[in-house]
Design a protein around this nucleic acid. Structure first.
Length: 409
RNA sequence: GGAUGGAUUCCCGAGUGGCCAAAGGGGGCAGACUGUAAAUCUGUUAGCAGCGCUUUCGAAGGUUCGAAUCCUUCUCCAUCCA
């Protein structure tokens, strides 16, 4: 059997959602002739899983000889992309954007090799911020049909709730980016999330109309779970790549806990495990699939946080769910505020350590049998602890099955 | 610019003077069952020094013994007309 081409591998993994011209794109990619860009708007101070997937795609293509351009949205971030969103985002200040860009840069360099001639990083603020309104309108305005823009899928939700002129212009900015990159760097392809499709087509159209040349676009499958929701989000927010915002252990657990229906898909989309090996896992059923989850969690943690952290997270996870103890686990050290007369109580501990958002919830959790210390269920809401005892013997407090904290004094 | 309708707790949405910390659903959390999955069933879902108190129905004032509910002003949103 001949080796899979780079493009076939992407296909087999299910990474490709839509393409403008499959034949040309696959040829370019397979021959390492693509100079492609992916845009990242600096909407937060850390990258998240969606970005990670895009960066991995960059890496995959970089490995097969193609040249990536990372485009940071210093300019487009000032506008805000309405695609697929039901509400307008909070507008970011210029300072926020600068800060976020700095954070992005740092994290990205862990994944992508920006060495000589390998990959480049640019910021669209460099050309967007100095645009002159009337000039721009005359330059690109005639090439966009408002009727067609409005019918674009990405605005669908906003047509019901309201779309501001500011955001409406996002598509033009993104199209302009592609147009600029095409001229400056010979960038002939754009990648992005599938929700970017219409924005990306705007760019290829603009290039064709202005320059009479062909440029291509390809979108990456959005990482959705079996219920059709975006993955990489938890109740408390996104799963971040920054260890300060999402600890390696939390990161590991997030993937360890994906549902059966999603494991294989995630392994395909997110890891670099060869497709042949993944195919072997696909036949796994029932509790066997549980192993796949651990592989997924381990691989991703390793890629994002390194071998050492991945091992630690895996160990902690094992220890906690088999024996209920772990060496390396989230720890909370009691502060003076938590102690009164050399004592403290269970509600204070739960609340102060962040296991529950309020003491009322802590009380409820106890009453419902959801709190335990070690293996013992807590039944007394007023259970109190001697601080001196805690100093010598730290305790492990659990809320539910998956939330726990080691408490030290 | 004009007309009309609207803003309720995490979300949707009921509530038109006291019985309202506010129905119902969704989501979340916890328990049972399991495989750290899903489905299902049960409980729970403002805060606090628990049986009571404090803060909540877009914002600010007012009427009233008593307001999510009535009045005034303001802000924002939607639809229709220009």
């Amino acid at each position: 059997m001949s080796k899979m081409t780079a493009y076939e591998d992407l296909q087999a993994r299910g990474l490709i959602a839509q393409v403008t011209n499959e034949k040309e794109i696959s040829n370019m990619i397979n021959q390492g002739k693509a100079i492609f860009y992916i845009g990242f708007d600096p909407t937060a101070d850390s990258l998240h899983v969606g970005h990670f997937m895009a960066l991995c795609l960059m890496k995959r293509l970089q490995l097969s000889g193609n040249r990536p351009i990372v485009l940071l949205g210093g300019g487009t971030g000032m506008i805000g992309d309405p695609s697929g969103k039901s509400d307008m985002r909070k507008m970011l200040t210029a300072e926020d954007i600068d800060h976020n860009i700095a954070c992005f840069k740092k994290q990205m360099s862990n994944f992508i090799d920006f060495g000589e001639g390998k990959a480049i990083m640019v910021n669209n603020a460099d050309w967007l911020m100095s645009l002159n309104y009337v000039e721009l309108l005359r330059e690109v305005g005639p090439h966009f049909s408002v009727n067609r823009m409005l019918s674009a899928e990405c605005y669908k939700q906003r047509m019901e709730k309201g779309l501001s002129f500011l955001e409406f212009n996002y598509m033009i900015m993104q199209s302009y980016d592609f147009y600029m990159l095409f001229q400056k760097y010979g960038c002939n392809m754009q990648f992005g999330g599938d929700d970017q499709w219409s924005n990306m087509l705007g760019g290829t159209e603009l290039i064709r109309r202005k320059l009479g040349e062909d440029a291509h676009a390809m979108t990456i499958t959005l990482l959705l779970n079996s219920e059709g929701k975006k993955m990489g989000k938890t109740e408390s927010g996104a799963v971040w790549l920054d260890p300060e915002k999402t600890t390696p252990f939390e990161f590991f657990q997030y993937w360890r806990n994906v549902s059966d229906a999603d494991v294989i898909k995630c392994i395909k989309l997110l890891t670099f495990i060869p497709i042949e090996e993944i195919q072997k896992m696909e036949v796994w059923e029932g509790s066997e699939l549980n192993q796949a989850k651990e592989i997924l969690a381990y691989e991703l943690t390793k890629m994002v946080h390194g071998d050492e952290e991945a091992d630690k997270a895996k160990e902690a996870s094992h220890a906690l769910f088999s024996t209920g103890t772990a060496v390396d686990m989230p720890t909370y050290v009691l502060t003076a505020e938590d102690i009164a007369d050399g004592k403290t109580d269970i509600l204070t501990i739960l609340h102060a350590s962040g296991l529950v958002p309020s003491k009322s919830e802590g009380r409820r959790a106890i009453q419902q049998g959801g709190v335990s210390i070690g293996d013992e269920k807590v039944t007394d809401v007023y259970l109190s602890f001697d601080v001196n005892t805690l100093k010598t013997e730290p305790i492990i407090v659990k809320r539910g099955k998956k939330n726990f904290r080691k408490i030290e004094a």
